[in-house]
Amino acid sequence: MKNHKILVDRKPLSETYIQSRQDFGNVLKGVKQLKPPLWKTAWFYGPVGMATVALTISASSIHANGIPIEQKAETNQLTIVEKEQPIEVLNVSEVPIPKAEEDLMKTELKATEVEITETIAVEDETENDIIYPKDQIIEEKTTLKKAFPNIHNIYTGDITFSELFSEDGITCGTKTITSFSIQYFNGKEDVKEQVEGNQIPGEISKMIERFNNGVMIYITEIKAIDENKKLLSLPSLNYIPRY
């Protein structure tokens, strides 16, 4: 089978004729036509394309929520104010604790983790434009407080001697406090004593009243029994007793 057409001694074209057919202008024109249009180049799909996508996404998200941008910002500000209130309760864990108590604290906090998580979940919902009435928030706050031990509803910081030595002693919602350790200054040194029950004994009360006015005392290793007779470790308390 013949693969080629063979031409022998074809009349050669003159150099002048070939030169006369030169057309550089046509070449330049061809190059311009060969260039892809702007919208087909990577430059277009880079910055311009990305900007378009970003605009489309933001426009569609605003449209989906049905809230203009300014109103949305206001709603967010309100949400932040609401959020600040329950977080106050968590400050109990931020109060400085003696180094030796830290590990125990970590274990003890686990018992209250569930309730804290629940509160945070409620806050998240408020972020999604669900605004709860204030009384409902206070209820949540109360539930959270029930998870922490306290004396006379005081959780940390300044406390009067009468409040500290009140008959109610240490309480924690429906839980029964069975024992605790108390660290105080006895006039010579810091001492730590183990106490059964939920009240500070009279001898220790006298020492505290005498030597610990304005000095922090630490109530740690608080043990309690819940409704199901399950033994729990509760977070520590720190007070500065004053007259």
């Binding site: 057409k5 031409l7 150099e15 030169q22 046509n26 070449v27």
Partner: peptide, 28 residues
């Protein structure tokens, strides 16, 4: 231009097509 045209025309029967192909070579 002339060299490339001769190279193309050497392998083609059609003179006009050879000029076209030569132009295309320079555009590319």
């Amino acid at each position: 231009h002339a060299q490339i045209f001769r190279y193309v025309y050497q392998r083609m029967d059609d003179q006009e097509l050879a000029f076209d192909v030569t132009s295309q070579v320079f555009i590319k």
